[in-house]
C-alpha cells in the first residue's frame, strides 16, 4: 500500500529539518578542511603527499563521522518514543517492519552522506596544499594512491557501519537515545582495548569476537589478520553479527507493545 519511498522521504525530512543535523555536517566539513591546513604547516620537507594528507585527515575525522552517524541512528527509533510520535507513526497502514526498514535506510543514507562529505572536503583541502605524486610513507610502493585511499576509507566505513548497527539495535531495544549513543560510542572506543585483551593469538575463541574484526584496515598491508584470520573470515564474522543485530532490532520493534 502506498509508496515505500515516501516513508524514506519522511525519515529524511525528520533528519534534515533539524538544526542539529546541519551543525553536525558543518563541524564535519570544517574539521576536514582545517586538518590539511595544519598538516601543511608542520610538513617541513614536503614529504607528505595528497593521499597521505587525506588519510591522515580521515583517521581523525572518521571518529566524528561515526559519532554523528551514531547520534542519528540512536535517535531514529528512540526519538519517536521519547517524542511520543511513535503512536502516530505506527497507526498507519504500514507494517512495523517497513517502518523500521525506512528508518534504517535513512540512517545509512546519512552515514553515507557524512562519509562522502568527509572524503570530498578532505580531498579538496588537501589538493590545495599537497601534490599528488611522490613517495608516500603510508602507501606501499607501486600502489595507486587513490585506490589505496579508497580502500582505506572503505575499511573505516565498515567500522562505522557496524557501530551504527549496534546503535540502531540499542535504540530499538532500550528506546533511550542517550543510552544507545553512550554504549555504541563506548564500544567504538573500547574495542581496541578488548581486541588486545582478548587477543585471538592467545585465545582461540577470541577470533569469533566482533571487536577483533571491526577494523579491517590491517588487511590493506597484510593478507593475514588477527589470529591468522583471512579477510573472508573477518567479513563472515561481521556478517553474522550484523544479521544478529538486525534480527534483534526487528524482533523487538515488531513485538513490543507501545505504551506511554
Amino acid at each position: 500500500m502506498g509508496n515505500f519511498l515516501g516513508l524514506v522521504r519522511n525519515e529524511n525530512m525528520k533528519i534534515y529539518r533539524r538544526v542539529r543535523t546541519w551543525v553536525m555536517l558543518g563541524i564535519l566539513a570544517f574539521c576536514n578542511a582545517i586538518l590539511p591546513v595544519l598538516f601543511s604547516m608542520v610538513d617541513s620537507g614536503g614529504q607528505t603527499t595528497l593521499w597521505d594528507s587525506v588519510m591522515l585527515t580521515a583517521s581523525f575525522t572518521f571518529y566524528l563521522c561515526t559519532i554523528f552517524s551514531v547520534i542519528v541512528a540512536a535517535d531514529s527509533v528512540a526519538g519517536e518514543f521519547s517524542w511520543g510520535t511513535i503512536k502516530l507513526l505506527l497507526i498507519r497502514p504500514w507494517s512495523r517492519s517497513k517502518i523500521l526498514l525506512s528508518k534504517y535506510i535513512a540512517v545509512i543514507l546519512f552515514s553515507l552522506l557524512c562519509t562522502l562529505l568527509l572524503a570530498a572536503v578532505a580531498m579538496l583541502a588537501s589538493s590545495i596544499f599537497f601534490a599528488g605524486g611522490g613517495e608516500s610513507s603510508l602507501i606501499g610502493p607501486g600502489e595507486s594512491g587513490s585506490a589505496f585511499t579508497f580502500r582505506y576509507l572503505l575499511c573505516d566505513y565498515v567500522n562505522l557501519f557496524m557501530t551504527v548497527a549496534i546503535a540502531f539495535m540499542l535504540s530499538t531495544v532500550f528506546r533511550a537515545g542517550g543510552l544507545s549513543i553512550g554504549l555504541a560510542l563506548f564500544i567504538m572506543f573500547a574495542k581496541g582495548i578488548f581486541a588486545s585483551l582478548f587477543n585471538p593469538d592467545r585465545y582461540g575463541w577470541a577470533k569469533y569476537l566482533l571487536f577483533s574484526h571491526m577494523d579491517l584496515s590491517g588487511y590493506l598491508k597484510a593478507d593475514e589478520g588477527p589470529g591468522g584470520a583471512t579477510l573472508g573470515f573477518s567479513l563472515a564474522v561481521l556478517a553474522v553479527y550484523y544479521i544478529v543485530f538486525m534480527a534483534v532490532s526487528w524482533y523487538v520493534f515488531h513485538k513490543r507493545d507501545v505504551a506511554a
Binding site: 500500500m1 502506498g2 509508496n3 515516501g6 516513508l7 522521504r9 519522511n10 525530512m13 525528520k14 502516530l88 507513526l89 498507519r92 497502514p93 504500514w94
Partner: peptide, 8 residues
C-alpha cells in the same frame, strides 16, 4: 505532509 505521505 509527513502523515499524508504515509497514506494513499
Amino acid at each position: 505532509r509527513h502523515f499524508a505521505r504515509m497514506m494513499k
